[in-house]
């Protein structure tokens, strides 16, 4: 078992594995996205309160789900890299951050588009929107900290510390924002009471969540491959690889 683990952590082996695995994530993601989009936009009935406006959840919910899941994955990878000094884990954390930030931005953007017809404003200081915005800034902080070190090793370890601090803080920030808004007196924008979702609305959503997750895995493998090549550019196997292909 451990030999398998060590083999996986070796860059050339991982590079080959990632190349082999990527299509197995990418193509199912494409097929499921098509099915989920058709189910969500055509087959699912319009909502009795929100009409067709609710259909944005088929993009919004998977991105919001991924925005936090990717942060968790990034922090775990960073911790593994920091504790066992596995460079590949650092490469995974570094590659996951921009993808996570993109999904966070997508969740925010679709949330705002949904908010305009439903709440009458693109932006409201709704607890969930606010904590999603803070998550975006934490991603930005992580990426700028990485960018400000020239030495990759130093950037890896410094950003790993930050990622771990962030993962402890994120729940605190999230619940703080929720409790804070409950301190507000007087009327504020109330979220429409979400009617429990019916089966025909639910299955496309689940398929979309799966599709987005597979898509994330495919993009992550692609980015980690590039990151590994960049980090190992002076090593022999990369030179062999390049001279073999050219």
């Amino acid at each position: 078992m451990w030999t398998w683990f060590h083999k996986l952590a070796s860059p050339p082996h991982f590079y080959r594995m990632a190349g082999l695995l990527r299509p197995w994530f990418f193509w199912p993601a494409v097929i499921l996205t098509v099915i989920g989009t058709y189910g969500g936009l055509v087959l699912a009935p319009p909502d009795y309160q929100m009409g067709d406006g609710f259909r944005i959840i088929y993009v919004h919910v998977p991105s919001a789900y991924l925005s936090t899941t990717i942060y968790g994955l990034m922090a775990v990878a960073a911790a593994v890299g920091l504790i066992w000094r596995i460079k590949l884990a650092h490469a995974v954390a570094a590659s996951a951050a921009p993808i996570g930030a993109s999904f966070t931005a997508l969740a925010l953007g679709t949330g705002m588009l949904w908010g305009k017809p439903m709440w009458g404003a693109y932006w409201a200081w709704d607890p969930r929107l606010t904590s999603e915005l803070i998550l975006l800034f934490i991603y930005f902080g992580y990426m700028s900290l990485r960018a400000s070190f020239e030495d990759v090793n130093k950037a890896d370890r410094a950003s790993a510390v930050l990622a771990i601090v962030g993962v402890i803080n994120l729940p605190i920030i999230h619940y703080s924002v929720i409790w804070w808004s409950s301190l507000h007196q007087g009327p504020s924008i109330k979220k429409l009471d979400a009617p429990s979702i019916t089966g025909d609305m639910l299955w496309p959503l689940l398929i979309m969540i799966l599709a987005f997750t597979l898509f994330f895995a495919a993009i992550l493998l692609y980015r980690v491959k590039a990151e590994v090549l960049d980090r190992e550019q002076n090593s022999r196997w990369v030179r062999d690889l390049v001279s073999g292909e050219v």
Binding site: F137, I138, G141, I173, S176
Partner: peptide, 12 residues
């Protein structure tokens, strides 16, 4: 950079 790193953590 320092402000960007710690301000989100200081929010609560």
């Amino acid at each position: 950079l320092l402000a960007l790193l710690v301000m989100p953590l200081m929010l609560p």
